[in-house]
Every structure is written in structure tokens, then in C-alpha cells.
């Protein structure tokens, strides 16, 4: 089995965990976990863009008030529910970006024609999200998108991709990826209803 295929399978398990997670604290843990994994796969981590992303999504969601009113700005209420929904969405998005890098860093080969296209789709998505953060002038939006697409076309290093693709799985790789999946399911278990029943403190977390 190729290393990239193992990475893809492991990533699919991890993304399933991400999708089924509901608790905000759990999402924070999973996001940190994905950032660590992606960093080890060569993705640069920059704190500020992620904080801006998370804050802007959370604040944007306050426009639809929901739940407990925390405070008001003039007559406009800032609600806990809206902030929580926004933060949850922001974390999901950040996690997904890093998860896709984790899965696609060695460009996996998925069997079949559809598999090949899906593999390429996520590869390009990873390139788009990486390059987008490097584009300084994002206005006008259409011009920025055009620049992004032109840069994607120019900078694809085919040789590097092929070299990564060729590597075969070693026993050590399997163990490492099993540990990745184990950590994810441990996190899900810690925040599960079963543990909440045993430890009431966990049930009080958002």
C-alpha cells in the first residue's frame, strides 16, 4: 500500500469524528489536533489568520440572535447561542482545511476514475486555501480569484508530488496512523454521553 493511501484512509476516519462531534470544547480539541497533524505534514501554521477567521465567523453569527442574551450593544443583543453556533462553524471550517491538508499532503491515489478526480479535487482545494491566505490584495474579489487560479497553475510541482506518491507504507507508518485515529476516538469518548453520565462536570461543558 502507498503511504498516501494510508494517509487518506486515516484522514477519512478522522473527518468522520470531526463531523459527528457536537460539543464546542470537543471541536476546539479536534481543531488543535488537526493543526498539529497538518503541521507535522508540512503545513505552516499561522495563528492570526485563524483567530481572525474564527472571530469574524462568530461575530457574523451574532446578527441572528439565539439563546441567552449576554449583553447588548445599543438595542442589539449579543447572544450566547449565536456566538456558540458561529464558533462551532468556524472551528469546523478551520479543522476541515487542516484535515484536507493532512489527507492530501502526499496526494493519494483513490481507485477508479471518480476516485482520481476526488483525489485531485482535494489536492487543488488544499492549494487554493494555502495560496489564498498568501494573496495580499483580496479586492476586487473576482480579480483576486483570477490571480489565485493563475498562481495555482504556475506553481504545481509535479515532480515533488510524484515522489511523495511513490513511497510505500512501513510498519511504523501504520502504527502512527492508528495512534492518530485512536486519539480522535479517545476525544469522542471523553465527550460522549456515557462519560458525561459518570462525570457530571463533563456534562456542564458547552
Amino acid at each position: 500500500m502507498r503511504y498516501s493511501t494510508l494517509r487518506l484512509i486515516s484522514g477519512a476516519f478522522l473527518i468522520t469524528g470531526l463531523i459527528i462531534s457536537q460539543s464546542l470544547i470537543l471541536r476546539v480539541c479536534i481543531t488543535i489536533f488537526f493543526i498539529i497533524l497538518a503541521s507535522f505534514s508540512g503545513r505552516k501554521f499561522r495563528l492570526l489568520p485563524n483567530i481572525i477567521l474564527l472571530t469574524s465567523i462568530s461575530l457574523a453569527h451574532t446578527l441572528s440572535p439565539n439563546g441567552l442574551v449576554l449583553f447588548s450593544i445599543g438595542s442589539f443583543p449579543i447572544t450566547l447561542g449565536a456566538l456558540s453556533i458561529g464558533a462551532n462553524k468556524g472551528l469546523l471550517l478551520i479543522s476541515f482545511i487542516y484535515a484536507s491538508h493532512y489527507m492530501m499532503s502526499s496526494r493519494p491515489h483513490i481507485p477508479g476514475k471518480l476516485g482520481a478526480v476526488i483525489s485531485l479535487q482535494f489536492y487543488y482545494f488544499d492549494r487554493l486555501t494555502t495560496k489564498w491566505s498568501l494573496i495580499e490584495k483580496k479586492r476586487p474579489f473576482i480579480g483576486a480569484i483570477d490571480k489565485l487560479l493563475l498562481e495555482i497553475d504556475e506553481n504545481i510541482d509535479d515532480k515533488e508530488i510524484k515522489q511523495k506518491e511513490m513511497r510505500l507504507v512501513e510498519k511504523r507508518d501504520i502504527v502512527i496512523h492508528i495512534i492518530h485515529i485512536f486519539i480522535m476516538f479517545l476525544l469522542l469518548l471523553i465527550f460522549s454521553d456515557m462519560v458525561k453520565g459518570i462525570c457530571p462536570f463533563m456534562g456542564r461543558l458547552p
Binding site: H61, V117, L120, Q121, F122, Y123, F125, D153, D158
Partner: peptide, 29 residues
């Protein structure tokens, strides 16, 4: 690039753009 000159690649790139725009849309409440 030679890497991305097939039509399948183009479909993948367009679908990646759709995915990218989905992420932007996801940020909007």
C-alpha cells in the same frame, strides 16, 4: 502545467473552486 492539462484535471479544479467558495459561504450566517 503538464500536470493539469487534461479535462479531468479541469473538472477537479472547478470542483475545488466550488469547494473553496462553499467554505467562504459557510462563514456567512
Amino acid at each position: 502545467t503538464p500536470h493539469s492539462n487534461t479535462r479531468v484535471d479541469l473538472v477537479a479544479l472547478f470542483s475545488a473552486c466550488a469547494l473553496f467558495l462553499s467554505t467562504i459561504e459557510y462563514m456567512i450566517p
